[in-house]
Amino acid sequence: MTPFSPVVSAVAWWQPAVDLALALVLSAAIGLEREIRQKSAGLRTHTLVGFGAALFMLVSKHGFSDILGDSVVLDPSRVAAQIVSGIGFIGGGLIFVRRDAVKGLTTAAAVWLTAGVGMAAGAGLWLLAVLATAGNFVVMLGLTPLAARLPRSKHAQSRLRLSYADGRGVLRRALAECTGLRFVVDEVSLEQRGTSQEAGTVTVTLLIHGPGSIADLTSRLAETEGVLTVACADAEHL
């Protein structure tokens, strides 16, 4: 059987096809978690990143075998290095800063990891790709509750979104509750006032920090007369 036999060729190309399919499945699994949490980069973005990274790796490994010879020498690792550099443009586009709040860091890191998973699958390192995918879920699903239980720094900012009936002095009482629980209000911004559907309703965002309990603050504000809804999240949104 010659090296150019169709049977040998078909068998040889089953391996890259399986590598590519594995990258597709693992990347989609990572993207599904981001999609469920409604992040800026979700199922399709992560799947395409991992799938594309695997494709580039396979092209680097197998795409130039017909021109190799005594006078032609190729370095397959060069393509891998360019993938790592190029994925930074996508990750950088997911990160943005609004005043002092940084958003998208975790999603950008997930995209970066997804590219690594695709590269590992494309390189034929199946076990490494599967372990990296499993590690992603350990971090995303396991460490998030742990991080929420860690003691908050008094300098960590939180974003408080408050909707209330206009003209009743609710904002003044809400600010008093914040200072009474040892919070400092860094910023107050108006989001909406008196829409056609919610006439007389005001929605504001308070950027606060302090050593007090966020749970106690939201509970007190929810019980304040005139407050319609209250929600709080870390200023640095994952």
Results as ranks from 00 to 15, higher is better:
G52T: 10
Q82R: 05
A156M: 11
A148P: 04
T179N: 08
C178V: 00
S60L: 12
T47Q: 01
L150Q: 12
T45V: 02
S71E: 10
V227H: 04
A41Q: 06
S9M: 12
A109K: 08
V170H: 01
S219G: 10
R149I: 12
G180H: 13
S196Q: 11
R44N: 05
G116L: 03
A53R: 05
A156E: 15
L125C: 00
S60M: 13
S71V: 03
S60P: 08
I83T: 03
T107Y: 07
S189V: 15
T195R: 14
V7T: 12
G86S: 09
L238E: 12
V11K: 04
L143Y: 11
S77T: 09
G169Q: 08
A54S: 10
L190A: 08
D19P: 00
E187G: 08
L217M: 11
T2F: 01
V49W: 04
P211E: 14
L131E: 08
T195K: 13
I67T: 05
W112I: 06
G169K: 07
E187W: 01
F64Q: 10
G169R: 08
Q197L: 15
A53F: 04
L207Y: 03
A235H: 14
F51M: 11
S189H: 10
S60F: 13
R220E: 12
R168L: 14
E223Q: 14
E33Q: 14
A17T: 07
S65W: 14
T106F: 02
V18C: 13
T218L: 05
A156K: 13
